[in-house]
Amino acid sequence: MLLKRIRRRRESFTGYLFVFPWIIGFLLFMAYPIYFSLNMSFHKVLITSEGIQKDFLGWDNFKYAFLSDPKYVEELLVFIKSVVFMIPIVVVFAMLVALLINQPIRFKGLFRAIFFLPVVITSGEVVKELFAQGATTISIVERYGIIQFIEANLSPSWSEPIIAIIQQLIVILWYSGVQILIFLAGLQKVNSQIYEAASIDGASPWEIFWKITLPSIKPFILVNIIYTTVDLFTNSLNDVIILIKEHMFKINTGFGYATAQAWIYFMIIFVILLFVVVIFGRNEDYNPRKAGR
């Protein structure tokens, strides 16, 4: 009894020793900055020669962001709208490519390497440059007047984000590299005997996809939607985060207002993720992958 307790205590101690760097790092470079920035978002912050001077403002920074700032809400809405389109595009594309590569074909490694390449070379600057040179879309799209069609049939508040997506469609697809790998791993885990049994029973590939493949990789779809959401919000150079950086060094707004903007941005990510988990996380009770074992 005593021996057991000593052993357990020793285990906890060793565990803490191993994760100790993370605890320090989290407190110093995460928890403290989070507290500090939350505090700052309710102040007007001035950096003077004597140090940081803070005037309490209450919710004024947040009110200003929503009610008075000429650009912030607009940029935020444009970005959220485009993300709402981008997430399904990325996830469906990743699934399609993973399904293709998972077929009994040769050069699987080569195809995987092709579709993963952008993860390695994409940086904000490179994408910006490619977009500026018009290399991010296929000219066919423009040739057949699809953009004009969208412009004519949708209100500008929706047509603008859609056109923006079409114009950078390829680099949006570039965000799917990791997701393809996750789907491939998921597909490889589906028991091949289930497929054999289904085809002996006369199921067509179409039926097999909807009735076996899709339900089996459902958990991976959720993982990929979450990953895509986080990736798009934290990894891409969008107008919202550029705006935040601009406001950092503006005298009349400063650090306080910039952090308030950052917090609003984070809250939106959080709400979207919550929404995704609630919608796609349901029906976990049916899982043929686990049932098949």
Binding site: V19, F26, F29, M30, V230, F233, T234, I241, A262, L273
Partner: peptide, 23 residues
């Protein structure tokens, strides 16, 4: 702690950027 690790995954760097910059 694991929950905090997941939190650091979804928190955008903009939130902690300014305090870190000052630090």
């Amino acid at each position: 702690m694991l929950a905090f690790i997941l939190l650091t995954f979804i928190i955008p760097v903009q939130v902690v950027m300014i305090p870190l910059f000052l630090l």
